[in-house]
Every structure is written in structure tokens, then in C-alpha cells.
Simulated scan of single mutants.
Amino acid sequence: MSRSLFRSKTLPDIRPVQRADMPTLINLIADHAAFERQQVDKAHLVHALPDCFFGDDACARVLVAECGGELVGYGTASVEFSTWRAACFLHLDCLYLAPQSRGFGLGTRMLAAFADVARAQNLGWMEWQTPDWNEDAARFYRRNDAVGQAKLRFSKQISG
């Protein structure tokens, strides 16, 4: 992907994911995981993600950023519940842009698109996390009026 695509008069399109996007999307997901010093099982994602993203039982909302016919980013979100607020909110699980597509306002547009999703579902707020070492992301979120929260995130494997 050439940075010149972003200098054209046509803005990248932000749209819902389509089944045909899955191979490229899975590569973006793997790139995102590697950036965050993690690994994913791409073969598992090929099998499991379509059920999560499409159909009546879909559990995630997925938006992709496309420029010049090429996917350059994605975001995934789901509705979660806050006991303390007694209300549901939009949990943004992933927001990732390929490195060459950063710095052109696309991340801000992606956040705004997810805010629109939250509004359409009458959700009062969004939440997400980023690794504590990712200062670029933290600065980006703060520039977009997000407030950091001092919490640790834990995980516990339950099966297999």
C-alpha cells in the first residue's frame, strides 16, 4: 500500500466487513497481534471468525477501512454490561491500522464510526484498552477525547 493512495481526493471507505474480506482481514489481525507481541492461530481464525461476524448469531460488529480496493485497517466491537453503571456500553476490542495508513485521520474516522454504532444502539459510552507500552496509541486516544483508566487486565484460561 502506497502512502500516495491517502493523498488522493478519495477518502478511504469505512464499511462493515464482508465475507470476501476475510483472508485479508485475518492477515491484518495477525499483523495486529504481532505488533502487540502476541500470536494468533490463523487457521483457527479462518474457521471460527465467520460465525462471530456474520449471521443471526454474530457476536461482534466489524468495520474495515478500505483504500484503493485494499483493506488497510479494521476494528471489532461488541456490547458489554457495566454493573456499576447498570447499563450496556460498546467494547472496542480491536482497532488497528496498517502502519502505512496511519497519520491521515483514518483512526479518528474509525473511532467516530464506532461511536455512531454505539449511538445507534443507545449505548452511552465506549471502552477499550491498549498495551501500557503503546504510547503512540495512548496519545492518539487522548487526542480523540478519551480518558485513560488505571486498571490491570487479567486473563484466565478455562478450557484446553
Rank of each mutant, 00 (worst) to 15 (best):
A98R: 13
T108N: 09
R7Y: 11
Q100V: 08
Q18F: 08
V46I: 13
F54V: 10
C67A: 15
F54H: 10
K9C: 09
V62G: 05
D116K: 11
W84T: 14
C88Y: 04
K151H: 15
I14E: 08
F89Y: 15
A118F: 05
G124M: 02
T130H: 03
T24D: 13
G160V: 15
A138F: 00
K151F: 14
L123M: 04
G105Y: 02
R19I: 11
V17D: 03
C52F: 12
F154R: 00
T10S: 11
S2Y: 02
Y74C: 03
V72T: 09
C88A: 13
A87L: 02
R7D: 11
Q121P: 01
A115I: 02
C52M: 14
S82I: 01
H47V: 13
R102G: 03
G148Y: 00
D56T: 11
M1I: 04
S155K: 11
T83G: 06
S82A: 06
A20P: 06
L123A: 04
T24R: 15
A60P: 08
A20F: 05
T108V: 04
Y96M: 00
V72A: 05
P12F: 05
Y74G: 01
W128T: 14
A113I: 04
A48R: 13
V17H: 01
G55C: 07
L152F: 15
P16F: 07
Q157C: 10
G160F: 09
N144R: 07
W125F: 15
A98G: 05
V72E: 06
Q39H: 09
L25T: 07
A77N: 06
G55F: 01
E70R: 13
V117G: 05
L5G: 04
Y96L: 00
S159H: 15
N122H: 13
A86D: 08
A34R: 11
T10G: 04
G73S: 08
V147E: 14
E135C: 01
S82F: 03
C67E: 07
C67R: 05
S78M: 13
F35A: 00
V79N: 03
G160N: 15
A120C: 02
N144G: 03
T76D: 05
K9M: 11
T76L: 08
A30T: 02
L11R: 10
P131L: 10
